[in-house]
Amino acid sequence: MIQMFNVYKFYPNNHPALTDISLHIKKGDFVFVTGPSGAGKTTLIKLIFCAERSTRGQIIVQGINLAKIKESSIAHLRRKIGVVFQDFKLLNSRTVYENVVFTLEAIGTNRREIKRKAWQVLKLVGLQNRLDATPLGLSGGEQQRIAIARAIVNNPIILLADEPTGNLDSEITQDIMELFKSINDRGTTVVIATHNKNLASQYSNKHIILDKGMRLDTQEW
């Protein structure tokens, strides 16, 4: 599903964000990318959905070589990948329903499909009764649920999450992790970046441990 071969990423100031990373995440995996701040977790996630390009090495996602992908094909790749962020990245002027529908409209889904898919996914994340609320009127946990609903409404094959529980208290963190687990149970490959090792250990034994841009573990699953 996701493979990296000797991937390097340098930012313009020549700061090495990732050094010689190789990994293989299989279909249906539930994987954590862990490590302290500045370890390169976010960069690794960004490389997978082409928000950043690797400086060297090969990245294969669902059979597509990201080193060779054309700018115009990136949009189509992203339709297969859902992304969730620590700061949710919601449109605060739009309602819960509109935030989710926005994704489907943006990729040109037809009207009937939009209604059906949006309702289904909002029910899955437990927001079916908050359709008309705006994000700022909701709790952090609920906002993250909107973001998750938006990320999975198009049935992506991969769900990436960058510190999805970083702004949430421990109880809500558990709820969100359960939600990720249930999404994974439906067959979606889930990759979560977190600095919280305990959380990672609680939910999966598949970890990619990073420090200063290098992979510390040598696990193969």
Binding site: A75, H76, R78, R79, K89, A106
Partner: peptide
């Protein structure tokens, strides 16, 4: 810009944006 950023994130083509 936030809307556009999210549109790009979820796979909207430049044409569509």
């Amino acid at each position: 810009r936030e809307e556009i950023e999210i549109m790009k994130l979820v796979g909207a083509t430049n044409f569509f944006i």
